[in-house]
Design a binder for these strands. Sequence first.
DNA 1: CCGCCGATCTTT
DNA 2: AAGATCGGCGGG
Length: 194
Amino acid sequence: MTVEAIGRSFFERPPQEVAPDLLGMVLSTDSAAGRIVEVEAYDGFDDPGSHAYRGRTPRTEIMFGDPGFLYVYFSYGMHWCANVVCRSSGEAAAVLVRALAPERGLEVMRDRRPAARRDPDLCSGPAKLCAALGISGEHNGADVLDDKSPVRLVAPAPILLGEVAQSTRIGLSAGRELRWRWYVSDDPNVSRRS
DNA sequence: CCGCCGATCTTT
DNA sequence: AAGATCGGCGGG
């Protein structure tokens, strides 16, 4: 399999452009990896749905930093979710990775996700995929472009990607009108349809 | 298959 | 007091 390196400039764009371009790319840790099939854009302090909306805080520090770094946050008191920072430093834009098609390390993923009854349940949600890949708070700030980083993003040789659908984002009370979610419509690993 | 609800704790 | 979630449970 041919693997192309992604440049820093890939992320120096609006998250609404980066997000759909991430579909089909591979998110990888040492133990496991999966192809991205669902993403959401969060556009910094102008976006009421973004953690950065209320300005810079200790939690959102990484979002206000350089593009191409991982923003990992703790959700509902028990889950971790991962974003990749976009635009340029200080703009606090990011793309949330919401679902993966498991590709490598299926055994480890099943061990880490005992609640998953079927393999498509392993990575079909932002917190599920972090658990499956072993991503947690210690990975906040990791450079996804550094091949020595614990969490990496790579672009494999292009594959035939299914039809891409667009919708509103999931789980928000503010900014629900914005259609900033993209997913591979026929993929069994997406967190949900529509 | 779908909807409801509780878990659990950080952030506001 | 709410939250960028998940999974178990009960009903259809």
